[in-house]
C-alpha cells in the first residue's frame, strides 16, 4: 500500500500516475526514440511513460528542459534549482519541490535555505539575492501579472545580470509547465 503525501520534503517520493502510462513493449518507434530507450537503457519512469502518450510534445520538451536547467553560462545551476522550487512551492507540486530542493542541497551543501522555504514560504529569511530570485519565481508562478517591475528591480539590485535574469525567467516558467504535468497527472506517494 502506498500513501499520498501532502507536505513538502527533500526526500524524493514515488509517483503514482492517474492515467495509463504507455506499455514499453507496445511503444511505437517514435515513442522509443523520444524515451531514449536503447538496449542498454530500458529503465523508463512511469512519469515519462505517461508523457509518451503525447510523443510529439515529449520529444521537443525534453531537450528544452535540459537546456534551460543545465546549459552553460548565465545563472548558476543551484539558483536555477531555487527558481524551480519557487514555482513548485506556489503550485504545490510536492514531487517537483522534493527533486529540486534536494538538488539544490546537493549543489550548495546547505540545507538551511530549503528548510526556511518549506517552513515559511515567501516569508522565509534568505539573503538578498536568494530572496529576490525566490520571490520573483514565486510571483511569476502565481500569475504573470503578480511579478512587477519592482521585483525585477530587486533582482538587478541584488546583482543579477541580464543573462542571469533571462535564465531565471526561463527556469521559473519551465516549472509552470513541469508542475502542471507532475501535480495533475499523478500523486506523490510513499510506500
Amino acid at each position: 500500500m502506498s500513501t499520498i503525501i501532502h507536505e513538502f520534503t527533500t526526500k524524493i517520493p514515488g509517483w503514482r500516475p492517474r492515467v495509463q502510462p504507455i506499455k514499453l513493449d507496445e511503444a511505437t518507434p517514435e515513442q522509443l526514440d523520444a524515451l531514449k530507450v536503447t538496449p542498454s537503457n530500458t529503465k523508463v519512469s512511469d512519469y515519462v511513460l505517461v508523457l509518451a502518450n503525447d510523443v510529439e510534445t515529449l520529444k521537443v520538451r525534453t531537450p528544452l528542459f535540459n537546456a534551460i536547467m543545465y546549459n552553460r553560462g548565465g545563472m548558476g545551476r543551484a539558483e536555477r534549482e531555487l527558481s524551480a522550487v519557487g514555482a513548485s512551492v506556489v503550485n504545490r507540486c510536492v514531487y517537483c519541490a522534493a527533486v529540486h530542493a534536494s538538488r539544490y542541497n546537493q549543489l550548495t551543501k546547505n540545507e538551511q535555505v530549503m528548510q526556511a522555504i518549506f517552513a515559511n514560504g515567501e516569508e522565509a529569511e534568505l539573503d538578498e539575492r536568494q530572496k529576490a530570485i525566490f520571490l520573483f519565481a514565486a510571483k511569476l508562478s502565481k500569475a504573470p501579472s503578480e511579478a512587477t517591475e519592482e521585483d525585477m528591480q530587486a533582482l538587478r539590485d541584488a546583482g543579477l545580470k541580464d543573462d542571469e535574469i533571462l535564465d531565471l525567467i526561463l527556469s521559473a516558467s519551465l516549472f509552470g509547465w513541469a508542475n502542471r504535468l507532475m501535480h495533475t497527472l499523478g500523486d506523490p506517494v510513499v510506500e
Binding site: 492515467v19 508523457l51 503525447d54 510534445t57 520538451r61 511579478a147 525585477m152 541580464d162 509547465w177 504535468l181
Partner: peptide
C-alpha cells in the same frame, strides 16, 4: 487525450510567463 490536454495547458503556462518576464526585463 488527457495527457495532450495537460501538455497544451502546461506549455501555455510556460509561454505566457516567458513573455511576461521578458516584458518586465
Amino acid at each position: 487525450d488527457i495527457v495532450r490536454l495537460s501538455e497544451l495547458n502546461a506549455f501555455l503556462a510556460y509561454q505566457i510567463r516567458v513573455i511576461a518576464g521578458l516584458k518586465l526585463m
